[in-house]
Design a binder for these strands. Sequence first.
DNA 1: CACTAACGTTAGCGACTGCTGACGGATCGA
DNA 2: TCGATCCGTCAGCAGTCGCTAACGTTAGTG
Lengths: 118, 118
Amino acid sequence: MGVSEDSSTDEVLRALAEPRRRGILRLVAQDELSAGEIAAAFDVSRTAISQHVTVLKNAGLLAERRDGTRRLYRARPEGLDGVRAFLDGMWGDALDTARRLVEAERGLSDDEEGRHAV
Amino acid sequence: MGVSEDSSTDEVLRALAEPRRRGILRLVAQDELSAGEIAAAFDVSRTAISQHVTVLKNAGLLAERRDGTRRLYRARPEGLDGVRAFLDGMWGDALDTARRLVEAERGLSDDEEGRHAV
DNA sequence: CACTAACGTTAGCGACTGCTGACGGATCGA
DNA sequence: TCGATCCGTCAGCAGTCGCTAACGTTAGTG
């Protein structure tokens, strides 16, 4: 059943539940940027950005590439697959339930057959 | 531009970034349950569940219906639309940028903006 | 009205989180 | 090698979060 939840989904959702981290993600979704360039785009210390980047990286939402002393980051779209599956899974389950309810009503009005035509 | 982020999206994402709240959501995605029934499904106090329900309700992820002294809750799938738009929008923006570049060369200006349903 | 059932709300506490400042490591040019 | 640049990490602090216990509220019952 789709009710189960990938263990990494929790990490991804927690990473996304932060405005600054979403900002970083949007930033590197368009271009590959260095840590410094990312930090320059926000009004917080470079340290804070580095910590956010670490969280995003651990969640699988960011890919890192080294070039000399610089570290270039880009968004990793596949990292969101788990969350998408989670969202779709809830719906799917809900829709399945709704369908079952509808068909259960049909079965009631159609009573006394003892058969379930799906 | 699609880069913008719905203000309520932040609230929704923060609400989702909590295992217990996702559990509640999955629970009432299938059936409409009372606060007590929801609380009975977890190993925390009823108070904690009530607080989680409040968060989910404020985020637009839960619909409340009163029946006597009881309060029945069910998931509100539309509440996730903003998050879906956010997920699709991130690389969508990158794609949009590429498309705008292409269409700018053609001299086309095919813009559209149709959303928002509260 | 009194009594109970079903909830929400508040105060307070421990744990976590995001932030800053100071520091250490790695890399490149002079 | 020296110095500068770019960057991650650690310690500490204020704010937030999730939890519990006690209390307040509303609706049904005798």
